[in-house]
Each structure stands twice: as structure tokens, then as C-alpha cells.
Amino acid sequence: MLKKVFALAAALALVGTLGVAEARPRRAQHIESISANSRVLVMTPDVQLSLLTAAGLPEPREDWSVSGRDNLATGLAAALEREQHAPNALDPATAMEGRIGQIIRLHDAVGGAILSNRLLKLPTIERDHEWTLGDGVQELATTYQADYALFTVARGSYASGARAAAAIVGLVAGVYIPMGGQQVFASLVDLRTGEIVWFGFVTAGGNDMREGDGANALIAELLRDAPL
């Protein structure tokens, strides 16, 4: 599990660091807003945050991860309600058995492929390629009475005081010392077809998801171009 966390964190961080992904989320041009009053299954965000030690090693912080997760979950539900949709929360940890568990895991793989493709442009991926989880998602639709599912993944680190001090010293000495960063991606899946109708990616910048206000600002930026 830890390996998965660090691998995804590395990929997310690289996407953010290289600036390969747009600062603003992107969606396919042909996407129209989803119907009003859509039932949206909001998967509890998968959040892994860590403390970046003075040595530059990430030290997982469960308390920060829980705060970030809860703040993002609350903010996402509120954002959907503001757009006249009906959010319904699902903690993936309670649904990892059977086919639904496989679909949830497949979403992680497809999300990873989408991010990878922003770094490694595959010549076989057309600009308007429709990423999909397949029609197995209909099981999610029927089980949870939903039209769409919204998946959110966040990874990142915050610099410790010692790390920040080292960065200042490094600045004086002309050495760049990274201070960590946080990245979030989200995808909206049509539960009739399995198509990922929207995929967004943002770096947190000054929006601290560990705080309610920061999480809300981050969500506003993340969903800016979402077809809600």
C-alpha cells in the first residue's frame, strides 16, 4: 500500500512540477453539462498527505490525511448541491469486495494512465480519446441509485519547520530545496456507459486542504471547468 502511495505521489508531483498539466483542469470540448438533479455518487476522496522532513523524506501523517479527506468530501458534496445535483457519499473502503471493488480499483488504474499520458504522450491516444471504465459501472449505478460517480485523489507533502529553515539557508547559499506540494485529480464517470466525461487536475498552491476554507478554494479551482 505504501508503495502505491509513493508511486502515485511521485507521478502526481511530477505532473505538477513539470507543468505538463494545465494549471486549470481540462475537459473535452464536446462535453455538455450533466442534467440538473443528477444523482452523483461521491466517492470518499483518497487522500494521502505527509510531512516533508528536513532530510526531504516524506513521513505519512494520518491526521492530515483524514482532515484533507473530510474537508474535500464535505466541500465536494456542497459544490454538487450548489449545482442542483444530488450527492450521495460512498466510502470505497466499504465496497472493495466483488465487481464494484474491481471497478473502484480500475478507476485508479485509468486515472494513473490519464496522468501518465500527460507526461508520456502515447501516439495511440487521440486528442479526443474517451477514457472508460467499461459498462461494468452499471453495477455501481444500480447498487447506489446513481447517474454519475465522482472520484477524487489527493497526494502531497507539507514541509516541516526544519525543512523550511533548510530551504531558507539553501536560498542564501543558492541551492534550491523543494518545499513539498500537493496535487489533486478528480474524474466524473457516467455510470450508464463507464465513460470518464471529465478529468481535472490541480496543484494546491496556497490552498491548504487540511483547513475547510482551503479545501473549498481548492475544490472551486478543481471543478472550475467540470460539466456540473
Binding site: 502505491k4 513539470l18 505538463v20 507526461l119 508520456l120 501516439p123
Partner: peptide, 27 residues
């Protein structure tokens, strides 16, 4: 290849691509 190794390889390769050092051939 474990998940970490694959992730790092993708990351390294991604850096190469981003800096214009590599392209993925089409068959």
C-alpha cells in the same frame, strides 16, 4: 516490476519526454 518501480520509471521517462529527450514510437 512493482508498482513503485513502474511509477518511478514512468516518472523518469516522463521527465525525459518533457525535456524533449524521448518519444514513444508508433507501431
Amino acid at each position: 516490476m512493482n508498482t513503485t518501480r513502474r511509477g518511478l520509471l514512468v516518472a523518469v521517462a516522463g521527465g525525459a519526454v518533457a525535456s524533449g529527450c524521448a518519444t514513444i514510437p508508433l507501431v
